[in-house]
């Protein structure tokens, strides 16, 4: 199965947890995980953000679950970098 090494997500999230807390919690998912968060739009109760997550082997389901646990919802997958398992070996 291909290995996901980078993923860019369009996410809608409440104001709390704030951008820093949100990114830190996602980065804590995996030791190799690096998160870049860009706030695109701020509304009364929500924020639209672009999340760029890189890591050695990203687990998309775990990332989505974590985002949802923080009150966010994934609107779209905007970019992905994947590597074939054979290539990774």
């Amino acid at each position: 199965m291909a290995i996901v090494t980078r993923i860019v997500l369009d996410v809608l999230k409440p104001h709390q947890p704030n951008a820093l807390e949100f990114a830190c919690q996602l980065a804590d998912l995996d030791a190799s995980c690096q998160v870049n968060l860009l706030v695109q739009e701020i509304d009364d109760k929500t924020q639209s953000i672009i999340l760029s997550i890189t890591g050695e082997r990203l687990d998309f389901d775990a990332i989505t679950q974590h985002i949802e646990a923080m009150g966010g919802s994934v609107h779209s997958i905007d970019e992905v970098d994947v590597q074939g398992e054979a290539a990774a070996e």
């Binding site: 809608l12 409440p14 109760k45 929500t46």
Partner: peptide, 16 residues
């Protein structure tokens, strides 16, 4: 409920 309206989704499984 107000937050769920803004998010247009259920937040049942969230920390909120």
């Amino acid at each position: 409920q107000e937050l769920e309206k803004s998010m247009v989704t259920s937040l049942d499984d969230s920390a909120h």
